[in-house]
Structures are given as C-alpha cells and as structure tokens.
Amino acid sequence: MGAFAIDVRGLTKRFGHKLAVNAADIAVPEGEVWGFLGPNGSGKTTTIRMLCGLLHADAGEGTCLGYDFRTQPEQIKREVGYMTQRFSFWEDLSIRENLEFVARVYELPDARGAVTAMIERLGLTTRQHQLAGDLSGGWKQRLALSACMLHSPKLLLLDEPTAGVDPKARRDFWDEIHRLSGDGITVLVSTHYMDEAERCDRVVFINLGKIVARGTVGEVIARSGLFTFIVEGDGARALAVKLRGEPGVEFAAFFGAALHASGRDRAALERALAPFRGAPGLTFHEAAPSLEDVFIQLQEQGNGDQP
C-alpha cells in the first residue's frame, strides 16, 4: 500500500445542473505517467483541479500523495506541481522574477540558487531578464513546467501542457517528462494528441464526465472491439459521405488522405462496404484500429447515449 500517488473514488462535481465529473475512480501508481484523454469539456480540467484542491468535490473520497484530497489541500499543494492549461505566470515579471517568486512562496531554503540552477538547466541564462509576456508559446511552456518543478514535487498535474506548441518543442517536452518519471515522479497529463497518449504508461479516457476506458494503449484498443477498414484512393472523399449513417459503420473519419471506416460488428461493416468494393481507384484493406479511432468511437458512442 501507499504505492498510489493518486487514489480517488467516486470523484463527482456539479456545476448547477450539469454533471461535470461523474463518479470518477482514478488510481495512479507512483512513478507512472498517465495520459488523460477526452474531448473538450469532458471534465479533464475539472478533475485535475479537484485533485489539487482548486475546486471542491461534491462527492468522492481518497488520497493524493497520501493526503485526503478533500480536507488537506494545503499539504497537497506543497508537494504537487500543477501546470495550468492557460499560461498563468506573470507576464509583467521577467523569467527570473517569476521563478524567484515561486521559489519564495514554496519557502525554498536557497531560492536564488535554486532559480539560477533551473535557469541554467533550461539554457535561459541569457534571457533570464526578459519579460515572460514576450516569450513565444514554446518558451512560455518551458517556463511554466520549470516553475512547477522548482519545489521538487512528487506529483505533476499537467493540463494540456503542449497545446499550441510546435512539434520539436513537444518532443523535447515529452523527453523531459520521461526523464522526470525516471526520477520517480508521478505524472498525470491531459492531452488531445494521440502520439503523446501513446507515450504514456496508461491512459484514462473521460467523456461527458464519466471514465469510459482505461488501461495501456494496447488494452484500450483491444477492449474497444473495433474493426477498421482503410479506404484509399481518389473516390474516398465521396465515399465518406455515403458511408456515414450506414448500418454497421459507427464512424468514418479521415486520417490524412486515408478514410477509416470503423464498427464493432465486423459482418455489418463488411456488408456496408461491399457495394463499393471494386470501384475504380479505391483500395480497401483491414487494419488494426489506432488509438484515435478508439477515441472517436468512444466519443461518438457517448454522444449517442445522450438524450
């Protein structure tokens, strides 16, 4: 026991009549990197905010780093690094001033020294006096990550940290996450990028406030029971329109130029595709569904359940 950095059950949050998070159970073992997936407005940010004491949970129990998340938010805040979705450092302070402020709020014994070391590690020594507001998106993100790492937290809660960041910066960011994880830090990171999700030890998929899938990427794909056919060729665009709404086709979506037609009933899916097989310029082949296929299917399924 004690091996879980996050261990909460029945986490629930209402905003008025809307159920933002509905009885979510999350147990993240120490040292793992978990991806938190779900469409916009599905409850990812709300869940993360409840975990670090920024929102009151309407129901639920459990611990975060061994502290009761409902009654000990102050202790949790000391040991958690939380990176907000929107850049939330002071744009009218310089990089160094921002970091020094954070270091002093956490009462680090040698705030200046810790900040100097962090700035050197980031390679920001020459730009340390630049105002945070003047930084590009990628640098803002690096500043935010290093600021929430300053107090050596045991758990990182990262809310869409790579939104709006270029591919190179995203890769660097994830290399850093894995390095931190290697040091024993637990990470819960929400994202919309499937390639990022695939770099996580486990993913949790939340839709409309409910956790609808969890496990390793392989497990989530396998459990989805989804079959996918890939259609390529010049007529694929026109075909997508025709296939949508056909029995057996749960969704038809483009990945690049290729059309993915997916459904859980393999026979029905084949029946729907049959009339188009052999059409000139179209090639059909079956493939393992990708995580994104599963993502879309889970989302569509959830929306279908809605009254």
């Binding site: 670090c52 920024l54 102050e74 939380y82 929107r86 850049f87 939330s88 450092f89 956490y106």
Partner: peptide, 13 residues
C-alpha cells in the same frame, strides 16, 4: 482577468 489567479491559488499561499 489575466489567468494568474489559478496559479496563485495552486501554490501554498
């Protein structure tokens, strides 16, 4: 308004 409030609250202040 600048979004820094969330950060301030997330810290042990």
């Amino acid at each position: 308004e600048r979004g820094t409030y969330e950060n301030l609250l997330a810290m042990p202040t």
